[in-house]
Amino acid sequence: MQSYVNVHDVLEARRQQALTEQRRGPTTVIVGPTDAGKSTLCKILINYAIRCRWTPALVDLDIGQGSITVPGCIAATSVEAPIDVEEGFPVDAPLVYYAGTVAGGENMALYQHLVERVADALERRAGTDAKVAASGMMVNTMGWIEGDGYSLLRHTIASLAADVVLVVGSDRLHSQLSSDLATSSPAISVVKLAKSGGVVTRTRELRQEARKVRVEEYFYGPTRSLAPASQTLKLEGVEVYRVGGGPKAPPSALPIGATSVADPLKLARVTNPQELLYTVLGVSHAPTPDLLLSASVAGFVYVQDVDLAKGSMSVLAPRPGPLPGSLLLAGNFKVYLD
């Protein structure tokens, strides 16, 4: 904990200096392997900043778990109150983009595209208020740090113009980033931190259960105090799309040295509603399908049943009434709610 306090002291000094100079405060990216305590460290540092009367932005890029909203999302929110132990982040109007996958490697181009969208939005937010800009942002990342995962980390650091990188629980990653970022301009501080002794390694089954809990909390609340609405949607009244739906040949089926030309950002309309059963759909703000990758989502619905004979599907929604939009983004992971 002493090292975490020391990090906070340095970030606090940078925020004060940024406010004096009327510029953006520190953008801190927390990286490290799976189950290293990145999310916990992120919460600790945000709470410290809030108690010093700052309003930092939280950016959650860990699409496998999701701390702001459901898994499968890249999201950001302004945190203005301390994080409650039971309720989690006080989220009123988060900025959410739905990737629809819980693994960044399934569509790296989409992941990078959405990170860039969030970066652009946060850049505009910082220009609205000097105190908001000086508060900076805290970025939580995935635990995938090898191979293409490392490439995604480098892309994240560059896209968000990070100036502080905290490496938790990995000497090798710290050495690699220190070497690769040594010539960056402006200079990026790469700091090594030990993994907390309270970290518990989770199995694959525990992670799947955690995703289910996160989806349940979205609809029912952390303390089951919310009352979601089950409603029926006419299939003809909505359009459901999936990103990266174009055909892609496996490397073994291609000529030597050739690569697939399939567009990973291609939108494909879902023609078989049955495949949507037990999936989470993002309700997009986009007015037209061609803007689906540029627009954030208003919220989510969970598909409970599909009736092709009646041309309808039953969904669980956070509240009753019509959906904010008729364009939906489909996820590729299933969750079986009780």
Rank of each mutant, 00 (worst) to 15 (best):
L291I: 04
Q231G: 10
G37M: 10
C52K: 15
F219Q: 02
K310E: 15
D338I: 01
T28P: 02
A253C: 00
A13Q: 14
G246C: 02
G282K: 01
S294T: 07
A134S: 14
N6Q: 13
R204S: 12
R117T: 04
E12P: 03
I46V: 07
Q22G: 03
V240N: 15
S67C: 10
R51N: 13
A13T: 08
R207W: 11
V31F: 04
E116G: 14
R154C: 15
K334Q: 15
L177C: 00
A130E: 15
P287R: 10
S179V: 08
V200I: 10
A187Y: 01
L153D: 03
A109N: 07
T183P: 02
Y97D: 09
P26Y: 03
L95K: 06
R51F: 02
A18Y: 06
R15T: 00
M142Q: 13
L329G: 07
L153W: 14
A187E: 00
R202L: 14
V315R: 13
E123S: 12
G32I: 04
A317N: 05
V315H: 09
T141P: 11
P222W: 12
A210Y: 02
D307L: 02
A36K: 01
G37C: 12
Y278R: 15
V191G: 00
S196N: 04
D338P: 15
S225E: 15
P251N: 10
R15G: 09
E80L: 04
L122F: 08
N6C: 04
A298N: 09
A13F: 03
T77D: 13
S284Q: 08
E106G: 11
R242F: 07
R23I: 09
L281E: 14
P287I: 05
V96Q: 09
N140G: 02
Y302E: 09
F333C: 09
H113N: 03
K195Q: 15
S151L: 14
L293W: 10
V238R: 07
A76K: 06
L323W: 08
Y97L: 10
A295N: 05
S178H: 09
V315C: 04
E21M: 10
P251K: 12
Y336H: 15
M142I: 09
L226K: 14
D129M: 05
E12G: 06
A134L: 06
R124P: 00
L206S: 09
A330V: 05
G237H: 11
G282V: 01
T40P: 07
T183L: 13
G221R: 13
V29P: 00
T232Q: 15
R207G: 11
P320A: 10
K310L: 10
V243Y: 09
